[in-house]
Design a binder for these strands. Structure first.
Length: 509
RNA sequence: GGAGGCUUCGCCUAGUCUGGUCUAUGGCGCCGCACUGCUAAUGCGGUUUCGGGGUAACCCCCUGAUCGAGGGUUCAAAUCCCUCAGCCUCCGCCA
């Protein structure tokens, strides 16, 4: 077998922002679709029938139709629930909403009142400063025209004012800083439909595909590490030797498999109108803080003390920071980016969990989708991201379920989160492979990203969704598509990027 | 790592030497109105962003902040001083 130069996309979209608005008209998308179709037919006679896992024939759900149906039945289109804490005026008018949200998350409810009282102090000190400063400016203007006694008197009074203004200014700044500091501890308002409860209280939205019955097939499934080692694809011993536990090498076909997954994922995203991106993995505190990762998630983040920089746990961070401090014209929305990047996670507090293999690691690569949309479109966009994730996992022919994550298990930035969990045969349960969050205006307020809608300038909504987190996808692929002889069936979508291979074969010892 | 230049309300730009008349100039773009068979052209007006107050709310009115960021001098800072960041040019090192 020869190594696998994947066919590159024939042409990238010339104007990516435009293509995002009209995905169906995108030339690159068509070219990529062609490439995919030209892949070899997938029938492998010796195998169990694949239809078993995706009854109804169509292995990849028709994303457009399914999406339309979903959006129409959910009444989500154009509807924006009042969201996004961080807007002080909203908080003042309806503090109960924020209190309820905090309660549902199991977070500090009193924080809301702390914010409100700090805000009150901020506003009264601001009034005091404004008045003093105004008087100072008015008197100051008279000085150059004044003479003698009058001038001396003016100088005396403005001299007094000067120190009063400074004091008022300091008090105002102090109150404003305290307000901000408290306000930023508040998590996003949860969406009203999110199931209330802890980690176990999610609801299952749907189940796609059916797990294989290995007993019926007459053999015991091996786990991903054993399979990966037999394939010469995964080396965790040397990962530990060089970098410590939860590090690994992908070797040989394992390395090629990652590249195939990444290429296929980027191809799907490009076809759907996303602008492909490669992003910085090191970011400033502002980007990390603005995306909401320095709150409760802070213990999971790597920090470089010497440089005061953070290693990103997801390219969501640089993709959200990308438009920091910008005002985006409404007609440029939605903006959709798909980034490939390394991700770093300390995995503090997960000692002893998922210690075998590469399911939970400190460093991995991921293709991530990210959207900027008008606030009223966020729910619809959330369904779209989910649909693209479903399309992806379906194209890999993995059985999975979609869950609506419960309030207590949401990240601080998410108003709502859907996870796609793939079946892991040797664990006998569904495990998270992708996750998509609707962050409403939470991140855009914190990062000062706004949209211009006619005469109005207002915050917009940001959303993110995993397309392909590589190690976990490899875990699911190896385990679900393993054969009795230790080989692994390759789904057709990956074959163009693996030199046409239909299976990964164990290497001789 | 070293030296120099630069950073002004979407874009370009005046202003910085010599602090107050800067409520930041002009052009482009954009929005509105007028005029005009249509288009174009022209004329007039508007156009940074954020906070606070007035208002039931909008329009609007009053007010403060904002000239890369922070600090300092001063009655008063785009303007003077210090620190930092970013961009550009050159030098050194380097995949």
């Amino acid at each position: 077998m020869r190594p696998t130069p994947a066919q590159p996309p024939a042409q990238l979209p010339r104007e990516c922002a435009q293509s995002a608005r009209r995905p169906e008209a995108d030339e690159a998308g068509r070219a990529l679709a062609e490439i995919r179709k030209s892949g070899k037919p997938e029938n492998r006679k010796s195998e169990k029938p694949r239809e078993q896992y995706f009854p109804g024939g169509s292995k990849t759900p028709n994303s457009d139709k399914a999406l339309q149906k979903d959006i129409e039945s959910s009444g989500v289109r154009g509807h924006r629930y009042p969201g996004g804490v961080i807007d002080l005026r909203q908080l003042r008018e309806d503090p109960d909403r924020a209190r309820a949200s905090q309660r549902a998350r199991g977070e500090d409810v009193d924080l809301v009142d702390a914010v409100l009282s700090a805000d009150e102090r901020r506003r009264s000190s601001s009034v005091r400063f404004d008045e003093l400063r105004s008087e100072q400016k008015q008197l100051g203007k008279l000085i150059p025209k004044a003479e003698g006694e009058e001038k001396a008197e003016l100088l005396r009074r403005t001299g007094e004012l000067s120190s009063a203004v400074k004091a008022a200014d300091a008090e105002k700044d102090e109150a404003a800083a305290e307000t901000q500091q408290l306000l930023r501890q508040l998590s996003n308002l949860v969406h009203p439909d999110v199931p209330v409860g802890g980690e176990e209280d999610f609801t299952v939205r749907e189940t796609i595909g059916t797990p294989r019955d290995f007993a019926a097939e007459g053999f015991e499934p091996k786990d991903h590490l054993e399979l990966g080692q037999k394939l010469g694809a995964i080396d965790v011993e040397r990962g530990a030797k060089v970098s410590g536990s939860r590090f690994y090498f992908l070797t040989g076909i394992g390395a090629l498999l990652e590249l195939a997954l990444v290429n296929a994922a980027i191809a799907q995203a490009t076809e759907a109108g996303f602008t492909p991106m490669l992003t910085p993995a090191l970011v400033k505190p502002q980007a990390m803080e603005g995306t909401g990762f320095l709150g409760q998630a802070a213990q999971d983040v790597y920090h470089l003390d010497k440089d005061d920089m953070y290693l990103v746990g997801t390219s969501e961070v640089p993709l959200a920071g990308y438009h920091m401090d910008e005002i985006i014209e409404a007609d440029r929305l939605p903006l959709r980016y798909a980034a490939f990047s390394p991700c770093f996670r300390r995995e503090a507090g997960s000692y002893g969990k998922d210690t075998r293999g590469i399911f939970r690691v400190h460093q991995f690569d991921k293709v991530e989708m990210f959207s900027y949309v008008a606030p009223e479109d966020s729910q619809e966009e959330h369904r779209r991201l989910l649909q693209w994730e479903k399309q992806w996992l379906s194209s890999l022919e993995l059985p999975f379920q979609v869950i609506d994550v419960a309030t207590g298990d949401l990240g601080s930035s998410a108003a709502r989160k859907f996870d796609c969990e793939a079946w892991i045969p040797t664990q006998g349960k569904y495990r998270e492979l992708t996750s998509t969050s609707d962050c409403t205006e939470f991140q855009s307020r914190r990062l000062s990203i706004r949209m211009r809608d006619g005469k109005n300038v207002k915050p917009l909504a940001t959303l993110n969704g995993t397309l392909c987190a590589v190690p976990r996808t490899i875990v699911a692929l190896l385990e679900n598509h393993q054969q009795e002889d230790g080989s692994v069936w390759v789904p057709p979508v990956l074959r163009p990027y693996l030199g046409g291979r239909e299976a990964l074969e164990p290497v001789a010892k």
